[in-house]
Simulated assay, not measured.
Amino acid sequence: MKLPHRPSTTIFSFIFIFLLPSSISSQICQRSCGKFPLKFPFGSDLGCGDPRFHQYVSCSQGNLMFTTHRGSYPVTNIDYTNKVMYISDPSMSTCSCTQPSKGFGLDWDAPFSFQDDNIFALLDCSTSSSPIFQSNTLYTDKNNSSKVSLCDNQGTSICSFLYSCRAISTINLPISTCCVYTPVDLGPAFDMDLQILQCSSYSGFYSFNERQSDPNSWNYGIALKYKFSVNNEYPSSCPNCERSNGICGYYSGGAYNSFLCNCPNGINTTNDCYFGANYNYGSRLSSWQIGTWLFYCLACLLISVWASSFL
């Protein structure tokens, strides 16, 4: 007598594994990008760090880049203690190189603003038609209480130092075409369009490096302040996540980018990465993951009951 065929445990195991939600595992967020350690709010990939920063700061082939509507710029340093990011502009003129540039600008909704120490000097500007040299061209401040010139009259010495650089002096630019651009306090709306200002290039630096009269020693680049939120505080769950060796991130597939803690094994949780009895693969499952598990377990049970009805 031939016994009826019974669905094997292997078949049910295969069905169970096949139906396991892929969302239980995710990519492992990297802790560095090239030589730079990555800490909140910055992240290596989608779902890592703060979602507001992902579109502006990204890791590409080991290079940390900052992107605005003007272009992409290499990140040269991040001061996590003071929340300042330093970038360089390859089109910027320095004491060793002078070249044409279109300028620099920040996106109006970017969580960045200029560090107060930034100094911008516009180079080779038209003294006859550039708006910065028009005697009646003034900038009205935020409170409309006063007006200031676009050029800093106290910046003549800075222009003198810059024009003593070999790279600038060799093209015989008169110092009168240099303007130390003052309205850098426009916040995220700042946009230095050299085409409109009719200048061929600019130089930016954030420190004299204690040698003001030696432009070869200045720290060229742009310093940008960043803020986590209005109160400039970590999300409440982030410290717990980092203390457990996790990386703060977010659920990129959700409508509200809800907080997730990315653990070293690639499992996302809603809190931390501490191990315990209620953890799976070394990490506690979030509530939505538990619900998904239960759904598929119930589905496997129904399939098993359905298959047994044919025995």
Rank of each mutant, 00 (worst) to 15 (best):
G62W: 04
S25F: 06
I28L: 02
C95R: 10
W108T: 13
S8G: 15
G49W: 03
D89R: 04
F12E: 14
R70K: 10
R31K: 14
T81E: 09
I87E: 06
F120V: 05
L138Y: 11
T81P: 00
S135I: 01
A121G: 02
F66W: 10
F40D: 03
Y56A: 12
P4D: 12
I11H: 12
L138H: 11
D124N: 15
S91T: 10
Q55L: 09
L106F: 02
D45R: 09
L122R: 02
C29D: 04
N82L: 09
G62D: 12
K39E: 14
D79K: 05
I11V: 15
G34K: 03
Q115D: 10
C29Q: 10
S60N: 12
I24M: 12
L46E: 14
N77I: 05
S22Q: 14
M92Q: 09
V57L: 13
P41G: 06
K83Y: 03
S44Y: 02
T76A: 12
S128P: 06
Q61H: 08
G47K: 04
S60Y: 07
S8V: 09
V84R: 00
S23I: 14
P37E: 12
A110R: 03
S93M: 07
M92V: 05
N77Q: 07
S88K: 14
S72W: 01
W108V: 12
T127W: 02
D116P: 00
K83R: 13
L38R: 09
F114L: 14
F18H: 06
F40I: 12
F114A: 01
Q134W: 01
N118E: 03
N63S: 12
I78G: 01
P7A: 13
L123G: 03
W108H: 09
I11S: 13
Y80Q: 07
P21M: 08
T140R: 15
N82M: 03
K39P: 00
S130N: 06
G62L: 04
M92N: 04
I15A: 14
Y56E: 13
D50F: 01
K39H: 12
M92L: 06
G105C: 11
I132E: 02
S44K: 04
K2R: 11
D45N: 10
Q61R: 10
S60R: 13
Y139G: 00
K83V: 02
N136R: 03
S91P: 01
T98A: 12
L122K: 05
S96L: 13
S129F: 09
S72E: 13
T140A: 10
Y80M: 07
